[in-house]
Write a protein that binds this DNA or RNA. Structure first.
Lengths: 225, 225
DNA sequence: GATTAAATTAAACGCATGTTTAAAATGTGT
DNA sequence: ACACATTTTAAACATGCGTTTAATTTAATC
């Protein structure tokens, strides 16, 4: 599924053979991910990425083709883990006799936390990438998600309808988008919020705490009669 | 409160004397507002604004000093109407004996709709401007709002606490930010959503409908025990 | 070890941005 | 009508961006 320029044979990927230094591709991908999650896609320049990754400016276009393609590659690395995991969790809910909204949203927790396998703070990074993907107008990302994982999202919608049979299609439509808004915003402004919270309430806050609060909130909003 | 360059005497503002054409300042302000609300602050260039306003490129810097100052002037025009109106509505709730969350959020409705006095679609524009102000990193705008209208926002927080005495400070903190997120997102993605909704449900959607749905949703999320 | 393919590099390209400059035009007060 | 302040204008400036080019270095293949 990788969109990388293949250049005939693509044997020596992933890790440089003799050196203990990761390959140029991986260095770009890792640095881009870190900076994208920190500042957003548009705010991060290729010069910034290549400088911090200690690779040549032109290598991004050589290996990925364009900045857009690099963005997609960064996001795809998480999507390819998250979406199948979510899919499995949602399937587990199909047999549930008395399905609740909270159950549906809690099905997100394991897939989200599994992203910490990709990176130490993978959950946080993924959600922030997602946030920027929606708040900046990265139409190509939305289209990619829709076409690659549209079936999973439809499954989600069906389960929410089952948990809230009294809600009209129209109401569900709006509320689901509000849910998305609260989620995205929480992540994009997340770091600032965490710092404020830390100062104000004098206790440690982490991404897990935020997600717990968020799930309760969005379930409450969505279930409102 | 205007940050405009005064240049000694500032007599001939607002409207050009002999011509029936609005002054350069007003033309810039109106066009900038329209484009900012449509595309966001960063996505809108001064060249785009001045071209559509039919004024010279340099006049923005002459009259406003910088793009940042122009952004602030555009937002301030709405804030200066909205915040006092909200303040008054909130004061009206001080004497309420059994205050509910829904009441607090419904206090936003009149101030919001009053913005249609500034422009035909003032409510929509204001909310979208607000959305971009938060989703783009316009730190100076956040600081301006906080310093100019911080007292009103604190009043709001106090009322919400009164309506939800069982909610801890910490929970209120998070939920209020989720509320903000849902609101902002609804507006920034608003036009796209309205069009989707129109196509999907085959009926007319306007900003008022969105706000009605939103208020119910956020009240539900915030009240969740 | 020669030959080919892949990867890296420094430099430039083309374009767009916000801002500044200095001259010209317009308006104002006496 | 003059002198002065204000506004408008066209042009250039400085900077940053993504991308492309062409030469060089490195790696793989026979």
């Amino acid at each position: 599924m990788s969109n990388l320029k293949s250049h005939a044979s693509d044997a020596p990927s992933s890790v440089r053979a003799s050196s203990n230094k990761p390959s140029t591709q991986k260095r770009i991908l890792d640095t881009a991910e870190r900076l994208f999650a920190k500042e957003g896609f548009e705010q991060t320049s290729l010069r910034q990425i290549t400088q911090e990754a200690d690779v040549n400016l032109a290598s991004v276009n050589y290996h990925f083709g364009s900045k857009k393609a690099l963005i997609q590659a960064v996001v795809a690395r998480y999507m390819d883990v998250f979406m199948p995991a979510l899919d499995e969790e949602l399937r587990g809910l199909d047999d549930e006799s008395a399905l609740t909204t909270l159950q549906v949203f809690e099905a997100f927790k394991l897939p989200l936390f599994s992203l910490n396998g990709i990176h130490k703070r993978g959950t946080e990074r993924f959600l922030r990438l997602l946030g920027f993907a929606y708040s900046e107008t990265q139409g190509h990302l939305r289209r990619y998600t829709q076409s690659a994982f549209g079936n999973v999202l439809q499954h989600l919608l069906a389960l929410l309808h089952r948990a809230n049979p009294k809600l009209s299609d129209e109401e569900m439509f709006w509320r689901l988008h509000f849910v998305l808004g609260a989620t995205v915003f929480a992540q994009v402004s997340g770091q600032a919020l965490i710092e404020i919270a830390r100062a104000e309430f004098n206790y440690e806050v982490n991404i897990k705490t935020v997600i717990e609060h968020l799930i309760v909130f969005i379930a409450g909003g969505l279930e409102r009669p």
